[in-house]
Simulated assay, not measured.
Amino acid sequence: MTLPLNPAFAATEAPPVMEARRWIAGKTFAPDRPLINVSQAAPVDSPPLPLRQALAEAALNDPQAHLYGPVLGLPDLRAEIATQFSAAYGGTIAADQVAITQGCNQAFCAIMSTLAGAGDEVILPTPWYFNHKMWFDMQGVTTVGLDTGDTLIPSATAAEALITEKTRAIVLVTPNNPGGVEYPAEVLAKFRDLCRARGLALIVDETYRDFDSRHSVELGGRPHDLFADPAWDDTLVQLYSFSKAYRLTGHRVGSIVASATRLAEVEKFLDTVAICPSQLGQMGALWGMQNLRQWVAGERDEILARRRAMTEGFAALEGWRLLGCGAYFAYVEHPFDMASDALCKRLVDDCAVLMLPGTMFQPDGSAAGKRQIRIAFANVDAAGIAELFRRLAAFRP
C-alpha cells in the first residue's frame, strides 16, 4: 500500500544541492586533481577558536543552554541585533521588532506563512533562490517570476505590471543568491515605495550582508537606508543569517526584523514547528556579535579578494560571460551548445568541478537558465580559483 502524498509536495522539485551531490556519489577523483566543489554557499571551516571556546563554556556551565527558551529568541540577542543594525543602517529598530529563528530559511518560511497561503501570489526575481520557490510550491502559493535580464537587477516598474489582487509580497535577496549582485539603494527604495503604495510586504533577505562591498560600519557605509524611514515597519521585513559571517551553519541561527505586530503572528509558526531556536547557537551568535567585529571585517576582505579573482578570471576566459559577482557567488553564461544541467554533469567527469546549473534557479523551460551557471566561490582560495579557471579553459565539449 502506498501512503498518500500531499500533491503540493509531489509538485515540488527535489533539493538542488542534494541533487548535485548525487552527481559525485561513488566517483573518485585523482589526488593530483581533486574535486573543486563550488556548488554550495556554506562555510566549511569551523567557527574561530574564541567562538568555539565560548560555545564550549556555555555548554558546560550555563544550564539555560540546554533548556527551552523564549519562542522569539533570547532577549539579549534580540536587543544586540536591534542596537547593531540600527547603527549599521542609520535607523531605529527596537528589540521587540526582532525575532530569532532556526536559520534564515526558517525565517523566510515563518514570515511568508503569515503573509501568503494557497492561491496567493508572491513576486520573486529570477534567477531565484530555489528554497524560496520550493516553499511556495509546498504551500500552494504561486511564484510570479520577475525577469532581471542581463543586469540581474530587478525593476520596480516591471514588478508593478505583475501585481494582481492575489499578490501578497515581493521578495528581494541582496547581495543576491544566486546572482551575486548588490542591489543599489535606490532600487530597494523604489520597491519599498511600490509595496507601500500597493499594500504589499517587501521581504529583503540580507543573508550575505556582511560580505556586501558597501557595508562597513567602520567606514560609515551602508547598503541601503530603508531603516532610516521612521515608518519602515509598515512595509519592510528583513531576514538575516548567522551561518555565513560566524560559520555557525550547524547551529541554525537566523533572524527576522519586522513590526512587533507581525512577529506576534510569526510566534505562532515558530512555537508550532520548533518551540524555540537553539539556545547554544543563540549564545554563540550573541558572543560573535559582541566580540568578532574585526574578525568578520577580515572575512569580508578575503571574500572581496576572491571576488576580484573571479572577475579577473572570467574577463580572460574566452566565451564565458560574467553576469554578476559578489558575496559568495559568480553567476555566469557559458558558451557551449548544451543545456547547463547537462554541462554541469560533464564538468564533474571531465574537469572534476561541481557547480549548479541555471536551470535550478529559473522557471521550467527557461532559455536563460540553460545558458547560466552559479559558482559559489567562497570556499575556494586564490590557488583554487586559478585552478578552476585552468580547468574551465581546457574543457572541450
Rank of each mutant, 00 (worst) to 15 (best):
Y246L: 15
R247V: 01
T249A: 15
G250L: 14
H251K: 05
H251E: 12
H251T: 04
R252Y: 11
R252Q: 11
V253N: 11
G254Y: 05
S255K: 02
S255T: 14
V257R: 13
A258R: 13
S259M: 09
L263T: 07
A264H: 12
V266F: 04
E267H: 08
E267R: 14
L270C: 02
D271Y: 08
D271W: 12
T272K: 13
T272I: 01
V273W: 00
A274V: 00
I275P: 03
C276E: 06
Q279G: 06
Q279W: 00
G281H: 04
Q282N: 04
M283T: 05
G284P: 02
L286E: 12
W287Y: 12
W287H: 15
G288H: 00
G288Q: 04
G288C: 09
M289K: 10
M289Y: 09
Q290F: 02
N291A: 06
N291Y: 00
L292G: 11
L292E: 13
R293M: 02
R293T: 11
R293E: 09
Q294E: 14
W295K: 01
W295P: 00
V296W: 01
V296Y: 02
R300S: 14
A305G: 08
R306F: 04
A309F: 01
M310C: 04
T311A: 10
E312M: 03
E312S: 14
F314A: 08
A315E: 11
A316C: 07
W320A: 10
W320G: 03
R321T: 15
L322I: 10
L323H: 14
G324V: 01
C325T: 08
C325A: 14
A327K: 04
A330E: 07
A330C: 04
E333Y: 12
E333V: 10
H334Q: 15
P335L: 11
F336M: 05
M338W: 01
M338H: 00
M338A: 07
S340N: 06
S340F: 02
D341Q: 11
A342P: 00
A342Q: 12
L343R: 05
K345H: 03
R346Q: 11
L347I: 03
L347H: 02
V348I: 11
C351K: 07
C351M: 06
A352E: 15
V353L: 07
V353R: 03
V353M: 09
V353H: 06
L354S: 10
M355R: 01
L356G: 00
P357N: 07
G358N: 07
G358V: 03
G358R: 08
T359N: 08
T359G: 07
D364G: 10
D364T: 07
G365R: 07
G365I: 08
S366E: 14
S366T: 07
A367G: 13
A367Q: 11
A367T: 13
A367C: 03
A368K: 12
G369E: 05
K370G: 11
K370L: 06
R371Q: 09
R371T: 11
Q372Y: 05
Q372V: 02
